[in-house]
Amino acid sequence: TEEFVRLWREAVRHNQTLHWNGTDFIPGDEWAEEFARREEEKL
């Protein structure tokens, strides 16, 4: 979602874990980066 992408970019900028829907998205984590890339492509 647009909100997820916005929060993810913020988390990456501050190198912080994003807690989203009970899942931890960690900047630099391969799975999280791939998920975020797919979400961005949907926008």
Rank of each mutant, 00 (worst) to 15 (best):
E41L: 14
E30D: 13
E33V: 07
A11W: 01
E33F: 04
D24P: 07
N15K: 12
F4W: 08
E41A: 13
R6V: 08
E30Q: 13
E3R: 07
R6S: 07
H14Q: 15
A36H: 02
E33I: 09
E40L: 14
P27A: 02
F35I: 10
E33P: 02
D29W: 03
E2M: 11
G28V: 00
W8F: 03
V5M: 13
L7Q: 12
R13P: 00
R38I: 12
T23C: 15
A11I: 01
R37C: 14
T1P: 14
E39Y: 14
F35L: 05
N15H: 09
W31Y: 08
N15A: 08
E40S: 10
W31P: 02
A36N: 02
A32N: 02
T17C: 15
W31C: 15
V5Y: 04
R9T: 06
D24V: 12
T23P: 01
E30N: 10
R13T: 11
H19Y: 07
F35D: 02
G22R: 01
F4S: 00
K42N: 07
N21Y: 12
E41V: 10
E10V: 04
F4P: 00
T23F: 15
T1V: 13
N21L: 12
I26N: 11
E33N: 07
F25I: 03
E10D: 12
G28Y: 02
R38C: 15
E33T: 05
L18V: 06
E41H: 11
E2V: 11
E39W: 13
H19V: 09
W31T: 06
Q16D: 04
E3C: 15
R38A: 13
W31K: 09
P27R: 01
T23H: 14
F35S: 02
E34H: 08
R9Q: 15
E2T: 10
P27I: 03
T17F: 05
E39G: 05
K42G: 04
E39S: 13
N15W: 08
R37S: 09
Q16K: 14
E39I: 15
V12W: 03
L43K: 04
G22E: 07
L7Y: 04
L43F: 09
V12I: 10
V5T: 08
F25T: 01
I26A: 11
T23G: 06
E41R: 13
E33Q: 07
R38L: 13
E3N: 11
A32Q: 01
W20H: 03
A11P: 00
W8T: 03
W20S: 01
L43E: 04
Q16S: 10
D29Y: 04
F25G: 00
V12E: 05
E34F: 04
E41P: 02
A36W: 08
Q16I: 14
K42P: 02
R38T: 10
F25L: 10
H19I: 08
T23V: 15
E10W: 08
W8G: 05
N21P: 01
W20T: 02
V5E: 07
P27E: 00
G22H: 06
F25A: 00
N15R: 10
N15Q: 11
E41S: 11
L7E: 07
G28K: 03
R37A: 10
E3P: 01
T1D: 12
G22A: 05
E30V: 13
E33K: 04
A32R: 01
K42Y: 06
N15F: 07
G22I: 02
D24T: 11
E2H: 13
W8I: 04
A32P: 01
P27Y: 02
K42H: 06
A32Y: 04
F4A: 00
E30G: 10
A32L: 04
E10P: 00
A11Q: 01
A36G: 07
H14G: 10
F35R: 06
T23R: 15
A36P: 01
Q16H: 09
F35K: 04
D24S: 08
A11N: 00
R38N: 12
I26G: 03
R9S: 06
A36K: 01
R13K: 15
E10Q: 06
R13G: 06
E2F: 09
E33A: 06
R13H: 10
E34I: 06
R6T: 08
L18Y: 00
W31I: 07
E30H: 11
T1F: 11
E30M: 12
V5I: 15
W31D: 06
W31Q: 08
R9I: 09
R38Q: 13
E40D: 05
V12L: 09
D29C: 12
P27Q: 02
H14R: 15
E2A: 14
Q16A: 12
N21A: 11
G28M: 03
W20D: 01
T17Q: 05
F4K: 00
D29N: 11
R13Y: 13
E40P: 04
W31H: 06
T1L: 14
F35T: 04
R9V: 07
L7R: 14
E30S: 13
E33R: 04
E34A: 13
T1E: 09
V5W: 05
R13W: 10
Q16E: 12
F35N: 03
E10R: 03
F25Y: 15
N15S: 09
A32G: 03
T23M: 15
L18Q: 01
N15C: 13
R6K: 13
W20E: 01
T17V: 14
R13C: 15
H14L: 15
K42I: 07
E39C: 15
D29Q: 09
R38K: 14
E33H: 08
T1H: 12
I26Q: 12
E3L: 09
Q16P: 02
K42V: 05
E39Q: 15
G22L: 03
D24N: 09
F25P: 01
H14N: 15
T17I: 15
L43W: 10
R38P: 05
A11Y: 02
E34P: 00
V12T: 05
E33M: 09
T17A: 12
E34T: 06
Q16N: 10
N15T: 06
A11K: 01
R6E: 12
D24W: 10
R37F: 06
R6L: 11
D24Y: 08
L18F: 08
L43A: 07
K42A: 08
H19K: 09
A32M: 03
E2Q: 12
P27K: 02
G28L: 03
V12F: 02
E40Y: 12
T23E: 12
A36E: 02
L43P: 03
W8C: 13
R38V: 11
V12Q: 10
F4E: 00
W31R: 07
L7A: 13
E40H: 09
H14F: 13
K42W: 07
T17R: 08
D29E: 12
T17K: 11
G22W: 03
I26T: 15
R38G: 10
D24K: 08
L43C: 14
V5F: 06
A32W: 04
V12P: 00
L43V: 07
L7D: 07
R38M: 13
D24Q: 09
G22M: 04
R38D: 07
N21W: 11
N15M: 10
R6H: 13
F4Y: 02
E39T: 15
E10F: 04
V5S: 05
H19R: 11
A36T: 03
H14M: 15
H14T: 15
H19P: 03
L18T: 02
F35A: 05
T17M: 10
H19S: 11
A32H: 02
T23I: 15
E3H: 08
V5R: 03
L7T: 00
R37G: 05
P27G: 03
E10L: 06
F25V: 01
E33L: 05
T1C: 15
L43D: 04
E3W: 07
W31S: 05
H19Q: 09
W20R: 01
N21F: 12
F4C: 13
E40R: 07
L7N: 08
D29V: 10
E30A: 15
L43R: 05
E2I: 11
R38E: 08
H14P: 00
T23W: 13
W20N: 01
L43T: 06
E34S: 09
H19A: 05
E34C: 14
V5N: 10
E40N: 07
E34Y: 06
D29K: 03
N15L: 08
G22Q: 05
A36S: 03
W8M: 05
G28R: 03
F25E: 00
F4Q: 00
G22Y: 03
H19E: 06
G22F: 06
P27N: 02
F4N: 00
D29S: 09
P27L: 03
I26H: 11
I26S: 11
L18K: 00
H14K: 15
T1M: 14
E3S: 09
F25R: 00
N21I: 05
W8Q: 06
R13D: 09
G28D: 02
Q16R: 14
F35P: 02
R38Y: 10
F25H: 07
E34W: 08
R9P: 07
P27M: 02
A11C: 15
F4M: 01
E2K: 11
A32S: 15
V12H: 04
R37I: 05
F25N: 00
G28I: 01
E41K: 13
V5K: 06
W20M: 03
D24L: 14
E30Y: 11
E2Y: 10
D24I: 12
